[in-house]
């Protein structure tokens, strides 16, 4: 009886130590810091991390269980961070020892589907072999299936993927990503694909505050910052931009900031002040934001400048 108690004690210590040793805490913290919002996605990643950690300890105590299947689908509107999270996913799964290599292979339809009969299978297998041991990220996965053309080779690629996802579960994690509505149709017409994916992660749109934090984070990474009036102008910009068509969340923010940087450089150049301080080079003023066509014409900018 006493023995059983000490054994239980040892296990309890193991889990905490295991967490430390895996270094997964650092990765999850980084995820929290660098990715704004996305609460549901982060909590799902935490769940997966916890499961894999517990699994590892269980394995050490010879409590056998089947390796969980970790194929995932990421659905969400443009610019909601699907690719960014996929990149992190490879690192997280690698730290947890679920995949053997910390590498991610990003492909689209072009890389998987061939142009003539007999071309698709070797092409898909080639890609799969390159991704082995890591994560295969298929962006815009719904393009694989084109119902309007029954002779489309996409179906062949899907079948090979299904087979690999089933037989090589230990060697490869497949992540499918795409816009929510189109992915729904994709899964409806490929029920086999839907059932082999255990984790469906939805990436919600960002709200205005989150977009503002994303903007600050992006600027910080590039050694820029907004002036006080610039910040005000930019939050107004976000409000207006969100209501216009073709709004792509963080991607629109990135583009807007890129354009603001161009205008800032232009302003500095045309002013030709005799002295420029380091701060001048880093500050983006309200004028740069207000110059956007959103304020002048109520239309999104098309060309940078």
């Amino acid at each position: 009886m006493a023995e059983a108690v000490t054994e239980g004690g040892d296990d309890a210590i193991n889990l905490a130590r295991e967490y430390e040793e895996s270094g997964i805490g650092g990765v999850l913290d980084q995820l929290d810091r660098e990715l704004v919002g996305l609460r549901s996605v982060k909590s799902r990643i935490r769940d997966i991390a916890a499961l894999l950690l517990v699994d590892r300890v269980r394995q050490r105590l010879q409590l056998t269980s089947e390796k969980p299947s970790l194929h995932m689908s990421f659905t969400g509107n443009p610019g909601t961070g699907k690719t960014t999270v996929a990149l992190r996913m490879a690192e997280i799964l690698h730290r947890l020892g679920y995949i053997r290599e910390n590498h991610l292979v990003t492909v689209t339809r072009d890389d998987l589907v061939g142009q003539y009969i007999g071309h698709t299978a070797p092409k898909t297998r080639e890609v799969v072999k390159k991704a082995m041991g890591g994560v295969l990220f298929i962006d815009e996965a719904y393009y694989l299936y084109k119902p309007e053309n029954e002779r489309d080779y996409g179906q062949e690629a899907i079948e090979i993927l299904l087979q690999i996802m089933e037989n090589n579960r230990d060697d490869l994690v497949v992540v499918l990503a795409g816009y929510a509505d189109r992915m729904d149709t994709f899964f409806k017409s490929n029920p086999g694909m839907h059932s082999r994916i255990g984790h469906h992660l939805e990436f919600p749109d960002y709200d205005a505050d989150e977009l503002m934090s994303i903007a600050r984070l992006m600027l910080e990474q590039q050694n820029y910052h907004l002036s006080e009036s610039g910040e005000q102008a930019f939050s107004e910009y976000i409000d207006r931009r969100m209501r216009l068509p073709h709004f792509a969340n963080a991607r629109s923010i990135r583009n807007a900031l890129d354009r603001a940087r161009l205008r800032q450089a232009n302003r500095l150049f045309s002013e030709k002040p005799t002295r420029i301080s380091k701060d001048d080079l880093m500050t983006i003023e309200a004028a740069e934001i207000h110059a956007s066509r959103i304020f002048t014409e109520g239309k999104p900018d098309q060309d940078p400048v």
Partner: peptide
Amino acid sequence: MFDLRDPAGVLL
């Protein structure tokens, strides 16, 4: 097979 990272592909 060029550009492989993991032996599983070759074993396949």
